[in-house]
């Protein structure tokens, strides 16, 4: 279920936190595996902060673009009315379908930019980091649960810790 993605209110934080917490508790194993998949990369980059292969390059843009395409393809049919993935029944007015289309366009742009290599390193880091990838994955997963109302407050709550982790990692890399 999806509400307004651009609405944020401090009063809605406890409800959003509760929803995320309940979702994680209900799907402990799967969420644990997802966190491990992200954690492995983070720890590696954190420890090997000076090695060349822990830096974000265009190759990471390509990799995250491809995984985003897969997410978009799975997401696009989730609110389809015929329940048979009939192209004629895809409702573009549905917010989930719109998000899936947006992700699809975003992914193609990322892949194109990875090959063209015109982005400055700063933007490559912004778009190619594993935190953004994890943010997209986790939000898409939340959208599969009908009992979770995804809104702007929830997105901010997911984004803030990830952004903090990214900043910490980049600072460590810059200082180390």
């Amino acid at each position: 279920m999806m509400e307004n993605l651009f609405s944020f209110s401090f009063s809605a934080i406890p409800v959003a936190l509760g929803s995320i917490g309940r979702f994680i508790v209900e799907n402990t194993l799967l969420c644990g595996v997802l966190f491990i998949s992200y954690g492995l990369m983070y720890i590696y980059s954190f420890i090997n902060n000076q090695s060349a292969d822990s830096e974000v390059y265009e190759i990471d843009l390509l990799s995250s673009g491809l995984s985003t395409i897969m997410i978009a393809m799975l997401l696009i049919g989730i609110d389809e009315s015929s329940k048979g993935f009939n192209l004629a029944n895809f409702d573009i007015s549905e917010p989930t379908t719109q998000i899936a289309l947006f992700l699809l366009v975003y992914a193609f742009v990322m892949i194109a930019l990875a090959f063209i290599k015109v982005l400055p390193q700063f933007l490559v880091v912004v778009f190619g980091n594993s935190e953004l990838d994890f943010f997209i994955n986790f939000t898409a997963i939340l959208l599969t649960d009908t009992s979770v109302a995804v809104n702007g407050t929830m997105l901010v709550l997911i984004a803030v810790p990830l952004l903090t982790m990214l900043v910490v990692q980049r600072l460590r890399r810059a200082m180390g």
Binding site: L30, S37, L40, M41, M70, L74, L75, I141
Partner: peptide, 17 residues
């Protein structure tokens, strides 16, 4: 790590969907 984490992420995503 990329190959292993891609597998973990893909598997989780697929199970959820």
């Amino acid at each position: 790590l990329n190959v292993i984490s891609a597998n973990l992420f893909a598997m989780t995503l697929a199970i959820f969907f």
